[in-house]
Design a protein around this nucleic acid. Sequence first.
DNA 1: ATGGTGGTCGCACCA
Length: 268
Amino acid sequence: MPFTIATWNINSVRLRIGLVERFLSEYAPDVLCLQETKCPDDLFPHNNFHAAGYEVVGVSGQKGYHGVAVVSRRPFEVVERRRFCSKDDCRHMSVRVQAGAKSLLVHNFYVPAGGDEPNPDVNPKFRHKLDFIEEMREVPAEHSADSGSILVGDLNVAPHPNDVWSHKQMLGVVSHTPVETEGLESMRKAGQWVDLMRHGVPDDEKLYTWWSYRAADWLASNRGRRLDHVWGSPGMESHLTGIRMLKDLRGWERPSDHVPVLATFDLD
DNA sequence: ATGGTGGTCGCACCA
């Protein structure tokens, strides 16, 4: 049995619950990690997920902003809802789930966007983003013979030159500045994480998971960025059998500006 | 220049 896990910045789980239901019906991931649920825990639409066959739900939400959730067709336990940068923001949840022969520790992250001005001295949101990425160094890719880790989420950084539509034109734009891309890559290597979306993909291939709402025609201009990520502990790449960025969903009615990333593993 | 939320019904804040 393959194990499938998806990550999706949904930009309000209540507003887009219909899209989530359609996605679960058509793609049926074992585990779905959501970000930007914008939903307090007592208002999370549990019933919709139960009706879709997702009995296991872990939520870490707040009113108006941020919020992450994990829903699953397999039993899991919430390991931790970690707070970063001494703030109460709901930006992380880790769960443990059995997948084939492996016990998987899954981290679901929503990294701060960082505002518009890429100068930490004048923009506290950018300072927060850099500090958050620095603190993420403390999250290692734990693994053993019968366990592994997966880290997914909206990391709000497009690290590779072909994770953006124009490397040169984006170098001064928050999400692709050198201090962010180098910080994220340094943190990824410190934790020994493997970038599973870039594994085995030619360097010159464009990969996007997000297209701005502000474009007059997002599909025609195609100025995307890869802000959403799937990382694995060392060795997980050998179990990966497929990974897809579901671009079509950006064209669904009233879409999120992010599309789901769906990864499939053979762990038996 | 678009979209979501919240607390007010036009606007601030966030992405």
